[in-house]
């Protein structure tokens, strides 16, 4: 999947991936896609739930060698 921006959350635990995602998404444009790379398994459930609560679109997770690549699309107003 192609992303407009990437944030590195390797080595970070809850709530930091969520905090960093929220901050980054705020800076991004509507409809843009953010990729979050994390290694805390918690993101597998936290990210879709965060997206649902904030109205952003959860596009999916790609898992690879203990790393999770999460894709979130910023909502359009």
């Amino acid at each position: 999947m192609k992303a407009d921006a990437i944030i590195d959350c390797i080595g970070l635990y809850c709530p930091m991936p969520i905090v960093n995602t929220a901050k980054k998404v705020r800076e991004m444009g509507e409809g843009q896609v953010l990729e979050i790379i994390a290694d805390d398994e918690g993101v597998k459930q936290d990210m879709p739930n965060w997206a649902r609560m904030t109205g952003n679109e959860f596009l999916g997770i790609e898992e690879e060698k203990g790393k999770y690549h999460v894709f979130v699309k910023k909502k359009s107003r």
Binding site: I18, V19, A22, W50
Partner: peptide, 11 residues
């Protein structure tokens, strides 16, 4: 604070 920050980050 973990919960508070999680809530604030979720709008």
């Amino acid at each position: 604070f973990n919960i508070a920050i999680g809530g604030a980050s979720s709008g």
